[in-house]
């Protein structure tokens, strides 16, 4: 384009026209501008004619126009926006693969459809894990009852609702949860009722043995539950069993009910008079009945998490608690209170 090229009077709407007019107003030649900007005259002409195809990239077009405008003292705000360049004119082997792979790119890992499918897969996985877990949970419950070694029989897992069973006034029948208060009246000394629950049957086996000797007592004693909760030794002579071994075992079994309920995780160390020990960490929600030989030596690591019920009466553990740890001995005198 020659410097004398004239433009219509209308408002210029392309950057080249503004640049060219400003340059002409200053009386500069294209070659002057090219020298100052260290560019070819051809590039200056291309910029003024708004023909950007010869310039290799958009970044250069924008940069050259900005530099040209600065040289002429123009504000960039006065320059109309530069039209976007067409795609690069150099055909490269990669560009062909680019266009064909655009389809693949559109459905990438960020695509909403893929994300929805992913979410569905995860939901299915989570629900199947939950179902599996429920199955496992049932097993866990069952196993809780039978995990103890028979040598550590004094302490058993036991459902909370199973009440005291060793009161002399009770019968050998297995107490059904919630039926305890009426039991002495209903059954009396007769042994005609049988265990009704298959799981509790195995748990209650030692307790049944305890209850047996006491049934030989007079029915008058049946009405007095507390006086009959004597120490084991006092009951022992009254038993008249054939098998002395069994008798000894029976004397070890308590005629009281000590139920431990754990409101939170708690470390316990329980020892009975025979030296049988239980040392473990109890989990939240676990319940236990102590059925060992008196006296018990108890140590709780987290006394606030333990709730003790003796013969259906709450027992205050906090008076033995020091700094959260409770250590005390449960003997007959305490149990009979």
């Amino acid at each position: 384009m020659s410097p004398n090229n004239s433009y219509p009077d209308s408002e210029p709407n392309l950057p080249g026209q503004i640049l060219s007019q400003s340059r002409q107003a200053k009386g500069w030649k294209e070659s002057d501008v090219a020298q100052k900007l260290h560019l070819n005259v051809a590039i200056i002409q291309a910029l003024e004619n708004d023909q950007y195809e010869t310039i290799p990239s958009q970044v250069f077009v924008n940069g050259y126009i900005r530099n040209y405008a600065n040289l002429l003292g123009l504000d960039m705000a006065q320059i109309p926006s530069i039209p976007k360049l067409a795609t690069p004119h150099v055909i490269h082997p990669h560009t062909q693969t680019k266009s064909s792979s655009n389809i693949n790119q559109e459905i990438g890992s960020n695509h909403i459809l893929i994300r929805i499918i992913n979410w569905l897969i995860v939901l299915v996985l989570i629900s199947s894990v939950v179902l599996w877990w429920q199955g496992q949970f049932g097993w866990d419950n069952f196993n809780n009852h039978i995990t103890y070694d028979s040598a550590i029989a004094p302490i058993e897992d036991y459902p909370e609702s199973v009440p005291t069973i060793s009161d002399p006034s009770t019968t050998p029948s297995v107490p059904i949860p919630g039926t305890l208060p009426s039991e002495p009246d209903k059954t009396g000394p007769s042994n005609n009722s049988s265990p009704s629950h298959p799981i509790t049957d195995s748990i209650l086996a030692p307790a049944l043995a305890i209850a047996m000797p006491s049934t030989t007592k007079s029915s008058s004693e049946n009405q007095q539950s507390k006086p009959s909760n004597n120490t084991i030794k006092t009951n022992l002579p009254s038993t008249n069993h054939q098998n002395s071994q069994t008798a000894n075992n029976q004397t070890d079994k308590p005629n009281h009910s000590v139920v431990l309920k754990f409101l939170d995780a708690c470390w316990v160390n329980i020892k009975d008079s025979k030296g049988t020990k239980l040392t473990r960490t109890m989990k939240k929600g676990q319940k236990h009945i102590l059925t060992g030989a008196l006296p018990y030596k108890l140590l709780f690591g987290n006394s606030k998490a333990v709730k003790i019920t003796i013969n259906n009466k709450p027992f205050d553990i906090q008076k033995y608690s020091r700094g959260g740890i409770a250590k005390f001995t449960l003997d007959a005198s305490i149990l009979n209170q």
């Binding site: 900007l37 260290h38 560019l39 970044v59 250069f60 924008n62 940069g63 050259y64 900005r66 530099n67």
Partner: peptide, 17 residues
């Protein structure tokens, strides 16, 4: 800074967007 590099190298220098 583009002017500095431009004058020192005598090459066109542009600042990217």
């Amino acid at each position: 800074i583009e002017k500095l590099v431009q004058e020192e190298t005598a090459l066109p220098v542009v600042v990217a967007e």
